[in-house]
Amino acid sequence: MANKTEITFTSESTAKIADLAKLKVEKKEENYLAKQFNQTLEVIDGLNKLNTQNIPETSQVTGLKNVFREDVVDKKRSLTQKEALSNSKKVHNGFFVVKAVFDSES
C-alpha cells in the first residue's frame, strides 16, 4: 500500500522536528532519519484511500465519561521530600536543580 508521499522530509525539517522534540540529532543522522520518515509517511498516506467525510474522530475507546475523584487529600500516595528527590542526579536544599533558565526577570 505504499504511495508516493506528498510531504517529504528533508534534513532541515528533520532538524526542526528534533528541536521541537528536544532531541539532539547529529548532522549526519538527519538525512538517514529523513529517509526513514518518508518511508513511514508513504505507508501512512494509505489512509487517504478511505473516505472519512462526516466520520467523527475517536480518541478514546472506553465510552466512559465524567470519571472524577472527590476533593479529598489522599496521603497514601504522598512522597516524602527524600523519596521525591531520590532518583534525581542533582538536588540542593530540598530542590531539584537544573542549569539556569532565564525567565521573565532577565
Binding site: R69, V72, K75, R77, S78, Q81, A84, L85
Partner: peptide
Amino acid sequence: TASKMFCGCPSNHFGKPPNTQTCPV
C-alpha cells in the same frame, strides 16, 4: 480546593518546604 487537580496531594502549597507535597502524579 483541598486537593490538587489530578491527584490527592494538598493544594495549599504556599510557604511549604520544597517538594514535600508531591506524589507520582
